[in-house]
Every structure is written in C-alpha cells, then in structure tokens.
Amino acid sequence: MWSIGELAEQAGVTVKTVRFYSDRGLLPETARSAGGHRRYGPEALDRLRLIRSLRTLDLPVPDVGRVLEREDALGDVLEDVVAGQLRELGPRLAALRWREAALHLLRDCAPEERPERLRLLGSVTAPPSTAAPARFWRSWLPARVPARLASAIVDTSIPQPPADPTPAQVLAFARLHALLAGIPHPGADYCQPAHHRPELGYDLGILYDGLTEAAALAAPALRARRSPHEGEALDCFVAAHARARGLRDTPDFRHRLSHQLAGDPYIGRYWELHAELSGHEPTLGAVHDWLRAALDSQAARTEGQLRCCP
C-alpha cells in the first residue's frame, strides 16, 4: 500500500494532482491508515497513468470519467470521446490557421498598408462566414428562378474559406466582404442583367439550365487555358438565351445578344476575388467572360463579312 506521496512519486506527478483526481472520484483509494491518511494499491498506479494519458490528449475531466467508468468497453467509449473531441477541435484549428495567416499578412506588408489591412480584417471573423455572399446571390436571383437552380447557382458562386489559407487568401476574403458591403441592394439596376427584367419575357428556368450546361462544356477549355473560340459550348450558351425567349438562334440574334451582354452590369471584381480563393477551378464569372469573348469575336467577324458583302 502506498501513501498519496508515494503514489505521486511512482507516477511522477505532484501530490496535488493525485488528490485532485481522488477528490473527483477518478482515482479511488484502497484504504485509510490508522491516522486517516489515504492508501493506494498497485492498481492505482495503472489507473493514474491512464488518466494522465487521457488528459495529455486534452480530454476534459468529465470525459475522462466516462472512459474510466466503462473500462470493460474502453475501446468503444474512447472512440466516441475522441470523435467528439475531433469534431470540436476542427473549427478551433481552422480559426487558428486563419489567425496565423492574418498575422503574417500584417507582419509582411509595408507599414503604410497596415491600417487598411487591419480595418479589412476587423470586419470578418476567423474563419470568415459565407453568410454575406449567400445573402447577396439569393437577392440577386429573381424569384422566377426555380428553387433547385437558384440553390445550385448560389452554392457555386460562393467561395468556401480554405482550411489552411495563405495570407493572400485571407486578404481576398476580407476584400470580398468589403466589396459586398459597398454594393447597393442586388435588386437595383446597378447589378441586374437585362434578362432579369420581366418585360423581356425570359424563361429563367430554361435560361439557367442552358447556361449551366454551357459552363460545364466551356470549363475544360478554361482549365487548358485555351483562347475563346466557337464550338459546342458557345452554341449551347447562345441557344439557352434564344430558347428562353422563344426565338431562333440566327446570326442576327447572336449579333444582338453580343450587344445586350456587353451592356449588362458585371461585378468583375467579385469574380477576381473568387478566383483567388478557388485556385485553378474556373468560376462562373470566368466562364461567362470566356463565352462572351467567343460570342463577341464571332459577332464582330460576321459583321465584318456583312460589310464586305452588301
């Protein structure tokens, strides 16, 4: 039988530690001396070592108690406790990585840039919430867009915070939030394309279904860094606009569509920041730019041919 001091010495811990776990029922004493002092058997040393191992994993004392209560099913209980700790640890680690990248961002910039960067960083959480861009895109899409399409467009248009961001990505996310804070209500003409206007009679379900298909067809060309060109993706893009208005895809329609799209408001800065955050994956904005450029090139060539051959 060991005294509390002898057990502490055997385990390499302090008497205070042994008393702490004893008082909480994690380390039962075997007996008491004639003077009322605690006595522990050899099994207490194994139990104390198990407690220390569990605490080394930063498990809270109540979770340690749960494991010790079910030593007959130690594996199952420990697996459950560890899984819960991992779920809690993930968000904390993500926040720490964002804070670390933000600190590098401030440390490594020129002194005159720090006030602005500090102001930008102060407006977002770590890691940042995607609520602001989600609100923007849900407001930007008219109620006439089918719910399934609206949900898919919103999901694709919102950049997800990287788990391990670079300082540049932290800055891009902060600038994205600042940009959205300065944009008027999405229902204003400032950022609404022509096809959202009810008087033009677009069937937005047909339009966005076709545009989604066109984007999927154009994406490989963007990944391969190919220049905008005619082909299946452009035909699908134009056909979506034509079908959505009940019109035929003709050279004249393509010419008029090119002019209409050129006059549409476009939030280019949003897509630039989105691209910084999403890496090499083409964004909807980049695909739209590519398809517009292909259409403009074709429309300009057709117009030139018509002028040469009256």
Results as ranks from 00 to 15, higher is better:
3 S>D: 02
10 Q>E: 09
11 A>L: 05
12 G>P: 03
13 V>E: 01
15 V>N: 08
15 V>D: 02
19 R>F: 10
21 Y>D: 04
22 S>Q: 14
28 P>D: 10
31 A>L: 04
32 R>N: 10
32 R>M: 08
38 R>M: 05
40 Y>W: 04
44 A>N: 07
44 A>S: 15
46 D>Y: 09
49 R>Q: 13
50 L>E: 06
52 R>D: 05
52 R>A: 13
52 R>P: 02
53 S>C: 10
54 L>A: 03
60 P>R: 12
60 P>C: 06
62 P>C: 12
68 L>M: 02
71 E>V: 10
71 E>H: 04
72 D>E: 13
76 D>A: 12
76 D>I: 08
78 L>P: 00
81 V>M: 00
81 V>F: 00
82 V>Y: 08
82 V>M: 08
87 R>T: 11
90 G>H: 11
91 P>D: 03
98 W>N: 04
102 A>M: 02
104 H>W: 12
109 C>L: 09
111 P>L: 14
113 E>K: 10
114 R>H: 10
114 R>K: 15
119 R>Y: 09
130 T>V: 14
131 A>F: 00
131 A>W: 00
133 P>W: 02
133 P>S: 09
136 F>Y: 15
136 F>R: 07
142 P>Y: 14
144 R>L: 14
150 A>S: 15
154 V>F: 03
154 V>Y: 04
154 V>K: 05
155 D>Q: 13
156 T>R: 15
156 T>H: 13
158 I>Q: 05
161 P>F: 01
163 A>C: 06
166 T>N: 02
175 R>N: 05
176 L>F: 03
177 H>Y: 02
177 H>K: 02
179 L>P: 02
179 L>D: 01
188 A>Q: 09
190 Y>H: 14
191 C>I: 12
191 C>H: 14
191 C>S: 14
193 P>M: 09
196 H>T: 08
200 L>E: 12
200 L>Q: 11
202 Y>P: 05
203 D>Y: 04
203 D>W: 02
206 I>T: 15
208 Y>C: 01
208 Y>D: 08
213 E>M: 07
213 E>C: 10
213 E>Y: 01
215 A>I: 02
219 A>W: 10
219 A>S: 15
220 P>A: 04
221 A>M: 08
224 A>K: 11
224 A>W: 10
230 E>G: 14
231 G>E: 10
232 E>N: 07
235 D>C: 09
236 C>R: 15
236 C>E: 07
238 V>T: 06
241 H>P: 07
242 A>Q: 09
253 F>Q: 04
254 R>D: 11
255 H>V: 06
260 Q>M: 13
266 Y>C: 11
268 G>A: 14
269 R>W: 08
275 A>P: 05
277 L>K: 01
278 S>L: 04
280 H>Y: 03
282 P>M: 12
283 T>V: 07
283 T>F: 03
288 H>Q: 12
290 W>L: 10
299 A>P: 04
300 A>P: 05
303 E>F: 12
304 G>A: 13
305 Q>K: 07
308 C>K: 11
309 C>I: 04
309 C>S: 13
